[in-house]
Design a protein around this nucleic acid. Structure first.
Lengths: 232, 232
DNA sequence: ATCGTTAACCTGACGGCGTCAACCTGAGAT
DNA sequence: ATCTCAGGTTGACGCCGTCAGGTTAACGAT
């Protein structure tokens, strides 16, 4: 913890403090593991600066937290671009897994990002870009006909499923989760992927359960595994 | 807002205050629409009592919040029991829809219940009972063979999907959600239900997307709608 | 070299929060 | 009438976010 007073920035370089404050905030989140530790006083002290100095670069505490979130959205966006390419359906699965892994590796950040009471009315640009990546990944699947429907709506559904799993894991760790988190994520991703693929093919009214089970069995039997080992 | 001082309870009836405090807390949540309004001072004033009197019945603020949550878990549990009966797969769908509806109708409560940093290490009894209801509903589906696998794990997956959707709707209201929330919930519930049903039938390695799309088409064509109008 | 300007930052204070130690008060048994 | 102690209250502490106003030092102009 930096208690030493920070050297005053040169004229015109006051923005440097903004960066240092953000880094201090991220460090506090990482080290404490709790968003409660993200105090203006703690952040300022860590940056070697007086508390009200934070207000030179952030309107209030919410603005600071929002700025931290923007960075996390950026990470998410980068993650998506890194996992694209190849079979779109598989790429979608890789993206989903990467999303979940990142969230579980940075639970505090994910908390702050997704479970905080929303501040502004509009979607922040970094978040919008991240969502655009999701939609693009889904669109590619629609083009190969494995998914059908409005890509934006499909993406929201897939996102919901993965987010639901990781957010429950993070917020309700005391529940009887299976030992293997990775396997659970696999389960969810596959469930969501195939559920989405199936959804648009279903009639409005369904046959009774027995007939359903039979059709499901047939579907499974019809799938011939690929030597390539593709998997969503 | 009750500012008038509460009449002191008779001997042996101190527990009455506990109930009034809980009611005051719930009212504050409902009326303000924000968990930030849930202040010990506000709760106490609303109950017509001094602030530290809350400590006569709750160890600290977390304990009070936890007690409010227990009531919500109770509501959830009741909701599940009300929607059982008939075709298990359909009942499961009804439960999921009721869950989502309740969450969206009580966003603040749902926030506090599911997005708060967990306090104690174990699962609170009311939550455990609620989860047991979920597992039971899934177990019934496993018995009719429409679902396959460990009911507890399947239930967690389904819960994840529905929770993900409603929690995103609540926490990120500025995202480009479709107009019709009800339709979105339907989408998610069907996706999750059929995704779960399909999951256990899938081979470890999958065929390429083109072949997958064809098999999915066949599956859809094979389903004959029921006159009864069953739907998950 | 020095001065004035002003960006960069600090001091001190306010009200509100959760929490606690200490005190009061009155209903009901004796 | 008195005693007891469950059922409260009072007042204070330290921490929080926030703000008005003061201080300091970098740099262009002189």
């Amino acid at each position: 913890m930096t208690t030493t007073r920070r050297v005053r920035a040169r004229r015109g370089e006051g923005v440097l403090l903004r960066e240092e404050i953000l880094r201090a905030a991220e460090a506090l989140l990482d080290e404490s593991g709790s968003e409660d530790a993200l105090t203006l006083r703690a952040v300022a002290m860590r940056a070697g600066v007086s508390t009200p100095s934070v207000y030179l670069h952030f309107a209030d505490k919410d603005a600071l937290v929002e700025a931290v979130c923007m960075r996390v959205w950026g990470e998410f966006g980068r993650m998506f671009t890194e996992n694209l390419g190849g079979d779109p359906f598989i790429a979608l699965g890789k993206c989903a897994r990467a999303y979940a892994r990142f969230a579980l590796d940075h639970p505090v950040q994910y908390r702050v990002l997704m479970m905080r009471a929303s501040t502004g009315p509009g979607v922040p640009p970094a978040a919008a870009e991240c969502f655009r990546h999701m939609v693009n990944a889904v669109s590619a699947c629609v083009e190969t006909r494995v998914l059908e429907g409005d890509p934006e709506e499909l993406a929201l559904g897939l996102w919901s499923a993965v987010h639901g799993c990781v957010s429950l894991l993070i917020a309700q760790p005391s529940f009887p989760w299976p030992r293997d988190r990775e396997a659970l994520i696999d389960h969810i991703v596959r469930m969501a992927g195939f559920g989405t693929a199936l959804y648009s093919r279903l009639p409005q009214q369904l046959p009774p359960s027995a007939e359903l089970a039979e059709a499901l069995d047939d579907f499974g039997a019809r799938l011939v595994p690929d030597a390539g080992g593709s998997e969503i």
